[in-house]
Amino acid sequence: MPSLPDMTTPNLSELAGKALAESGHVTVPAPDAGQEQFSEWLQRMGDNALILGHRASEWCGHAPALEEDIALANQALDLIGQCQLWLGLAAEVEAKGGDADRLAYLRDAGAFRNLLLVELPNGDFGMTLMRQFLFDAFHHTLLLALKTSSDSRVADIAAKAEKEVAYHLERSADLVIRLGDGTAESHNRMQAALTKLWSYTGEMFADDAVDQAMADAGIAPLPSTLKAAWEKTVTAVLDEATLVPPASAWQHGITGSGGGKKGVHTEHLGYILAEMQFLQRAYPGARW
């Protein structure tokens, strides 16, 4: 999506930064250019949680049963909480002033670093659950590895988030099995979701220069090294669910300059941001 000129008013961040500084919540340490890649990587972590959390929250009041409604809202809450930790650290590392809110509310689509998978529209309940499962399996494997990060701040956040995400994974795996191995209707919907979403899973394991720098510093594993564990979990659950991934699938976001990790998004992200960021864009620095 082309960025809208009036959504990137040059002094908007500055205004918000001032408002935040005046409210006494901001410390502005000296900038450290060497931390750029670290901040970039932290934003990937935070943005995945933020955007998937926002998608899950869209079900609030609309899910097929009250229990599911509550479960999705609770999951959204966990993810937004984790996002605050990751983006809070990103803002600290980036040292441009401001906090997690500045990153969440004042970046435009091209500056977001989430995977394409998490920004796709929710579709039906089957699509939402299948996406949650495919991501949870990846997220859990990643967080487990991050618990031994060379950066203790990363390890601490990962240890906290891993417990919550293990819980998410148990639920989404449970429901994928129940619905995949359920009625003909539920099976067909889960299979359709799997077939559509499979081409968005490759991006999770594609390494780039930022990933390499994180791996070299011992901060995070190379994404490609997580694939075997992910496949093991996913295959076991899909087998049980009588679902079959497409035999060969072209993968989005891993060739050329495309992909969410590089800030090249689907048209769907802009709509999420328009809703999520409206208030801070219209009233910079507003607090309540």
């Binding site: 487990l144 099995i177 659950v237």
Partner: peptide, 12 residues
């Protein structure tokens, strides 16, 4: 929850 799904599948 530990994210180990073998037990989960057995339980289901």
């Amino acid at each position: 929850a530990d994210g180990v799904l073998a037990g989960r599948i057995a339980r289901l």
